[in-house]
Amino acid sequence: MKAILTTIGKDQVGIIAGVSHFLAEKKINISDVSQTIMNGYFTMMMMVEIQEEQTEFTTLTRQLDELGKQLGVEIKIRREEIYDAMHQL
């Protein structure tokens, strides 16, 4: 399944490293990435591909929540369809 992972927070050392390290550990592939600083906030969006049989979404969400707390940012993951649905017919 494709999902969009968003990371928003105060810019600091190690955010990208922290997030991509976590994803690599979970064997989650990053297929696209975009990163900017908006109003002083670090904003990163990643499109990731999750093997459904490998990863339970609820657990993943909780782990990302914890990772976000460690890194001092907010990390959210949502299945891609919600973004498509809202903006495309």
Binding site: M45, K76, I82, M86, H87
Partner: peptide, 11 residues
């Protein structure tokens, strides 16, 4: 990946 649209939805 259409980042503007993603941002709008999240917002």
């Amino acid at each position: 990946m259409e980042t503007e649209k993603i941002k709008e939805t999240i917002h």
